[in-house]
Nucleic acid binder design. Structure first.
Lengths: 351, 351
DNA sequence: CCTCGCGATTTGCGCGCTCAAATTTTACCG
DNA sequence: CGGTAAAATTTGAGCGCGCAAATCGCGAGG
């Protein structure tokens, strides 16, 4: 015991590679090999080492690993405060999916808060230089988002969920086909016999909103639905109150729509509320389809377009860890329609 | 340049302590002191070093710091998948608040996914032994939650948001006073003139639900409200559909309540839906108050009890980093009532 | 019987930093 | 102006690990 260099895993610290090595009577590196390149170790040795690893409950120290291989195996991600007024978006679903996807590749999620876009850029730079995270995930991209270019310039690896209007070919992104989303909604309503399908969206100018509007337009045209008058396309802020007012304008028209496709669940909730106050029963007199499939949609039996967030997260992580692709990879995933009673019934005969 | 030991911050790696030291013509440790104990460094030297730190954009390497001081400055937190059916709880609000609170103390959030409680315990153990996180945050505690004891046994530092029924004096927690919450709701309704205030809660057996029920009971008794018959206390699963059915039972009574206090916003949504189908206008014929102030509540103009999540997060972080308290600290914070139109008007005269 | 070659295993080194102890410098007083 | 204490700064060691090069051991070939 007086022999120098003979450590025991004395209480306190977790066992180290050295501890396991000593216990198994091999060297540090052999234990490391058992973990990372088992084929290099003779089966007999390997088994013995494995035995001691589990007996001591050895767990590699991530900080030491990170330092040695200069890669932290952390994925950085800003967590945004939720926008007051809007229904919760899919932040938590996305974060959970990311964590899940990262786990498979032994990567963890590093969450940080930042006031705004430029604070986020600062934080990312700092975290990256400080080696706290190897790569980052950007989400909720706006049309003219500054972040992709900024990170590109800093040489920070990242993948975006969503994309900007321009320059989207200069960085890797994963996005959901919003155009397809609203198209699916309209198709579904047409199948149910609707011919006057309105669109309730955001004021034009925001990428996502515009794409969703475009999907409605395309579907209306391809089905040759009534829309020539143009009054079936209305816009409002993303709040329930605003949506209620705008929906009233839609309903007081001489030939009101029998169905409304909205750009968000928040707007859809507004449409439903307005319909009720107008004396219509949602699902019977007026069909409504929302977008994002928030928990609220499920609670209110609102049909909604669901983004495949889990797939997105998996693809984002794959792209992040994806070895040295040639050029930025881009993936456009397909959303799905979740049908609930707000749009399940066939259209009632003209009122 | 051939001089050995003379590194330049050549392209690639971020600048290190050594780089800054060399540039400023001082030693490694002096730079370190400027950062951590400026008072030990002579002002003139300090200024020069600071100058070079910012000029080189030096950022301490967190992995190296973590390794050296054997403290990762990371707070571990499991991210749960959201419960299908229930409205989103406050996960994202809490996570954001935690990240925000941790930032002030230079701590970041480490998110991980786990299937269930025991997987979470495993992960926590592994992350802790691996030095990936110094301490952990537990939330959504159930009455007989296994996690506190397990972490206690493993010697892993943690703070819980919420608490178990028994043994809550053996570990540090921060909780919101749920009893007070429903009491506030009832008080508010009584102020508005209501005398028959029903409670719509979870089946008894779950800590949180029971506390919320108790608050209603206390308030009803202290205000001497009608309740002797006992029919004003009803329970259902935490889903909108179930709540609708149960609310109908409440409404078909000979002396129906004029107001309903619920244990969650989900239940409140059910109550609101039921009222509408019954031909009552929420806010005029029937007042409803929810619990948790989810985004849905805001969207539907539902009054709700709001938990001070940001305070909770700050207190959790403070407790986590709090130096060697004597015994576990416990904090019970007060919720607040957010009044919206679902309960704002005075009670209408008896119907 | 000795050497070569190859797989198995070990050693040396450094990742970037902090702590403690050693060393140098500065300031002050007799 | 020497001496000394205090302040300022430097040096040495090591945190736990991975990489690369070095070493060991053993069977085949000459």
């Amino acid at each position: 015991m007086a022999e120098p260099g003979h450590h025991e895993p004395v209480g306190g610290g977790a066992p180290t590679l050295q501890d396991v090595a000593q216990a198994a009577g091999v060297s540090r590196q052999t234990v490391s090999n058992v973990l990372h390149a088992p084929e290099r170790v003779r089966p007999a040795t390997r088994e013995r080492v494995v035995e001691f690893i589990s007996r001591l409950g050895y767990q590699p120290n991530r900080q030491a690993q990170a330092l040695a291989r200069s890669a932290s195996h952390m994925i950085g991600c800003r967590i945004r405060p939720l926008t007051p007024g809007a229904l919760t978006s899919m932040h938590d679903r996305f974060l959970h999916a990311l964590a899940e996807a990262g786990r498979a590749a032994d990567h963890h999620l590093l969450l940080f808060a930042a006031e705004d876009e430029s604070a986020e850029i600062d934080s990312v730079g700092r975290l990256h230089r400080g080696g706290a995270a190897d790569a980052f995930v950007l989400y909720d991209l706006t049309a003219d988002d500054q972040r992709p270019k900024a990170l590109l310039d800093m040489g920070v690896p990242f993948v975006a969920f969503g994309r900007t209007d321009t320059g989207a070919d200069t960085y890797p992104w994963v996005d959901v086909d919003n155009v397809l989303g609203t198209r699916l909604a309209v198709d579904h309503l047409v199948n149910r016999g609707h011919r006057r399908v309105a669109f309730l969206g955001w004021p034009s100018g925001r990428t996502i909103g515009d794409r969703r509007a475009r999907g409605w337009h395309q579907a209306v045209e391809s089905h040759r639905l009534a829309s020539t008058c143009g009054v079936l396309d209305v816009r409002s802020e993303d709040s329930v109150q605003a949506a209620i007012q705008v929906t009233f304008r839609l309903l007081e028209h001489s030939e009101p729509p029998t169905a409304i496709v909205t750009a968000t669940d928040t707007l859809a909730v507004g449409a439903m509320q307005a319909a009720q106050r107008w004396g219509l029963e949602v699902g019977r007199d007026l069909a409504v389809v929302g977008f994002d499939d928030t928990p609220t949609a499920a609670a209110l039996e609102l049909s909604s377009i669901r983004q495949p967030i889990e797939l997105v997260a998996r693809q984002v992580v794959a792209a992040l860890l994806g070895t040295d692709e040639v050029g930025p990879g881009c993936w456009l995933l397909e959303p799905q329609l979740v049908i609930r009673s707000s749009s399940a019934r066939p259209a009632s005969p003209r009122r």
